[in-house]
Write a protein that binds this DNA or RNA. Sequence first.
DNA 1: AATAAAACTGACTGTGTAGTCAGTCAGTCA
DNA 2: TGACTGACTGACTACACAGTCAGTTTTATT
Lengths: 216, 216
Amino acid sequence: MHPPHSRKEAILQTATMFFSEKGYQDTSMSEIAKITGVADGTIFYHFKTKSELFLAVLKNFKEGIIRELEAFQNMAVFNTGLDMVEGTVSFYFSLADRMEDRFLLLHRHYPYKLAMKNPDCREHLEEIYTCFIDLFERAILKGQKDGSIREVHSKKQALLLFTLVDGLVRLGTYNLYKAGPLYSDLIDSCRCMLTNKQQETKPTFINPQNKRAHSL
Amino acid sequence: MHPPHSRKEAILQTATMFFSEKGYQDTSMSEIAKITGVADGTIFYHFKTKSELFLAVLKNFKEGIIRELEAFQNMAVFNTGLDMVEGTVSFYFSLADRMEDRFLLLHRHYPYKLAMKNPDCREHLEEIYTCFIDLFERAILKGQKDGSIREVHSKKQALLLFTLVDGLVRLGTYNLYKAGPLYSDLIDSCRCMLTNKQQETKPTFINPQNKRAHSL
DNA sequence: AATAAAACTGACTGTGTAGTCAGTCAGTCA
DNA sequence: TGACTGACTGACTACACAGTCAGTTTTATT
């Protein structure tokens, strides 16, 4: 299933890069072929159409994400659910930073448009989102068991949390505002959303992103 | 300056509709011409290039938004800053609902890409964002004066708030999750982010959006 | 070595599109 | 009436692109 350096794999890599950085429409198949170093026809031998290639890219991305998430879950241990929420936020930021290019895929409109017609596409997107949101929800549920998080609708709150964090990542890629300096305020806000008692701001973990953009 | 029903105006309307609903790339100039009921050349008589037409659409949208914001500010009166935050959130939702099609413009990637090369485009986008964020900030500052909102960095918190609310709107247009049912949880979370004391959930205002999508 | 299957090629096709331009037409003013 | 102007037209150009296919090369099998 994984012949180490097949042409097919190489095409997939190039396509991922192009679809992420330039978007679906602005990427031509010939371009992908040229950069990969194969003939135009070769792409169509491996992937019937352009949108099938896109689906393959998305699937590949999804699998990568899932692998990362599993690694995170196996590695990270948290005392409280609240800690786990913070850890998850931090993890999402670092992932978005590390896979910055590929995250752009999710922050374009094309996949969601395709998802309306193509059930496979929709399924990939849903799986990706579900993974992240479930992770947040698990943290919330844990926190509700150990008392570090107040009574909230775990699923809904998880979705809100995810929306907030992802929105901030997106803001960074839009290049209008710097998202980095908001990190500690974000963590603080998350804590407030989830707890009853008043808390002092703790020192924060990481502080990713450093694009040129508006300062606050 | 405003000859009531000029062709130019008509083209602008059609273009707004198409760029919003189908995106920049997927809209052809001939299409706009055909639907508007003018010859292909007419568009290029009024707008030199496709991207100049897009800029005009964006500018028009910006002006519409600003008008709406001013109307809101002149009309709405709030007892406390916290109320004003809630009112602003509610306003943003209803605006996004009422101008659903045009908001899609902001939720595509193209404008932000164009903004990297084109300063005019960037300025329009910045102005739009600034308007909204300033509105949130004004609410926060008011709340800090009257004691309904705790000590937070007003600009940063305003940005976080906006990100959260806009992210939720976007989620609705993506059609993967229903954003509507989250409205009361959103308001609750906002209140928690901004206040010190514990509060009971109050009855909420409106509850927009009703797309077919995942339930929670 | 012979054969077959799989991988690969690149010229070619058909279509769609942004932008051009020579020219039409209705209105205005002298 | 006739010269002039600005709005408008639609055929046309030049090109880019997804996808095809007949044919070539590589690899695996016997």
